[in-house]
Simulated assay, not measured.
Amino acid sequence: MPNKTPPRRRKATAVIVLGVCLALLGGIGAWLLLGRDTTPACNGLPENDRVQSSVGRDVRPGMSCQALGKAIVKASAGDPQGRHSLAQAKALKDVLTALGSQGPGELTLDPALRRPLATALADYPQDLHAMLGGINIQDFVTKAAPTTPPWKAEDGSYHLTVLTDTLRDVLHAIAQDPHSYALLRLTETRITGQRLAAVPADAEGFGLSVPPTESARALGTLDGIADSVTRGLDTSQARAWRAAVLDALADDRASATGGLASAWLQGLRSTAEEERYESLRAQGIEMTRLWAQQRKMDEQTRQGLLAKVERSALSAYREIEP
């Protein structure tokens, strides 16, 4: 049947249809460009009232993320003895809490904030160890709520504690950068060495078993975070991430502190390259084994302790494993 619509009207209709199609395509294009990443600049921290108040007047809307990272490190860093004031601990807690309040699940952290946040957390090694280890941490559990201020220890230093999900989300986001992850891993390695070395020679029961199992749990949590990060990468990217972590840990400067941590790190350096990552995954067990040897622990006690340590590390890993 012939089309009786006048040519002029058909042309006008075609123009309208074309305009509608272009508008739809434009909307889809905008969604593709903007909808992929709706995270505000610097994760919205410069606009957060609590962060502005606790980190200080250097924080202001529109600042660069690099400048924000420097301000966070400066505001939260303690004295040379590792003690922190209320204001310092509160500054970092408010930053972590603000990041945790952005919703449960996988936090996307601005890349420029990864290294500064790792540096800030590394300045709280005892607190990070307690939150990761999660065995003998009553003060950390009861005072982790976002509105609860940092708590004061008998030595006058204030301590950092946040909700477990908040800490894990932030650590996962930091760990996208392998060098930042290595810094946190090295921090835990050193504090594990110190904790084990401080166990009295006559310790038994829980006094003997809690320090190594708590340390293994902390390291197992970091193992889970590492595997969670690398599962989102292709094979070559995952290999490069692991290599960067191992290179940072095998650096001569990493093992310069002496003691148990230094001995384990030197052992990691001497391990065949293709076996290093598996050696890292067994760190909690291997540091306990080395510690038991140094203490000349009897075989029955040693084997029983190593079994507990292995279970502790595996349990922590499975809590993170995607």
Rank of each mutant, 00 (worst) to 15 (best):
P6Y: 13
R8E: 13
R10T: 11
T13R: 10
V15N: 05
I16S: 09
A23Q: 09
L24P: 02
W31G: 13
G35Q: 07
D37L: 01
G44Y: 09
L45Y: 00
E47M: 02
N48H: 01
D49M: 11
D49R: 14
D58M: 07
R60A: 10
L68V: 02
L68D: 01
K70F: 07
A71K: 01
A71Y: 03
R83V: 10
H84A: 02
L86A: 13
A87C: 04
A87N: 08
Q88C: 02
K90T: 15
A98L: 00
A98R: 00
L99T: 04
G105F: 05
G105Q: 04
E106T: 15
E106V: 15
E106R: 13
L107R: 05
L107S: 01
T108V: 15
T119V: 12
T119Y: 07
A120N: 03
A120I: 08
L121H: 04
P125N: 13
P125R: 13
Q126K: 15
H129A: 12
Q138S: 15
P150A: 03
K152S: 07
H159K: 14
L160V: 04
L163K: 13
D165M: 05
A173S: 08
E188I: 15
Q194H: 11
Q194P: 07
R195L: 09
A197R: 12
A197V: 08
D202C: 01
D202P: 01
A203G: 07
A203M: 06
F206T: 11
L208Y: 09
S209A: 15
S209V: 12
V210L: 14
T213V: 10
S215E: 03
A216I: 03
L222I: 06
D223N: 14
G224L: 04
I225Q: 02
V229K: 06
V229T: 08
T230Q: 06
T235G: 06
S236C: 04
S236I: 00
R242Q: 12
D247I: 11
D252Y: 10
S255V: 06
S255R: 11
A256C: 02
G258T: 11
G259L: 08
L260A: 03
S262K: 06
L265R: 08
L265Y: 09
S270D: 15
E273H: 12
Y277S: 04
L280F: 14
L280T: 01
R281H: 13
Q283M: 08
G284W: 03
R289G: 11
W291Q: 06
K296R: 14
M297S: 00
M297N: 04
Q303I: 05
A307P: 01
K308G: 10
E310C: 01
S312K: 07
S315P: 01
E321H: 14
P322K: 07
